[in-house]
């Protein structure tokens, strides 16, 4: 899926501001609209190894949650019983 998950030698190995960076990355992954987020993201991913790793791990966690979590089927009679009670109360 993402072919850029191999570490590159060009990235620095320690992040200058982990708190700020990680918070930004997480907000972007959560779909929050930040000004210039795309540019900042590309810059972080290209230049900072901890940011790169954190981003891909966080992205993987969100992906598996979204796609693999077991879903429960709604009991078939639930909607009808709700409507019935409301009808009775009218």
């Amino acid at each position: 899926m993402d072919d850029n998950s191999t570490p590159s030698g060009d990235r620095k190995l320690s992040c200058s501001d982990v708190s700020k960076c990680f918070q930004l990355l997480e907000s972007i992954l959560d779909g929050e609209n930040m000004p210039n987020s795309k540019e900042m993201l590309n810059e972080k991913l290209a230049k900072c190894e901890p940011c790169f790793k954190h981003f891909h791990l966080e992205q993987a966690i969100r992906d598996v949650l979204k796609t693999k979590c077991t879903k429960q089927a709604v009991p078939s009679e639930l909607e009808a019983s709700i409507r019935e009670i409301i009808q009775d109360k009218k």
Partner: peptide, 27 residues
Amino acid sequence: DVDYTSTTDLRVDAVKDMLGDEISNAL
């Protein structure tokens, strides 16, 4: 205040190979 410095050594590949039940149980 959140400590963003604590990092986990969990691997991306390991996460991607997780089964639905494992994800659900963890959650």
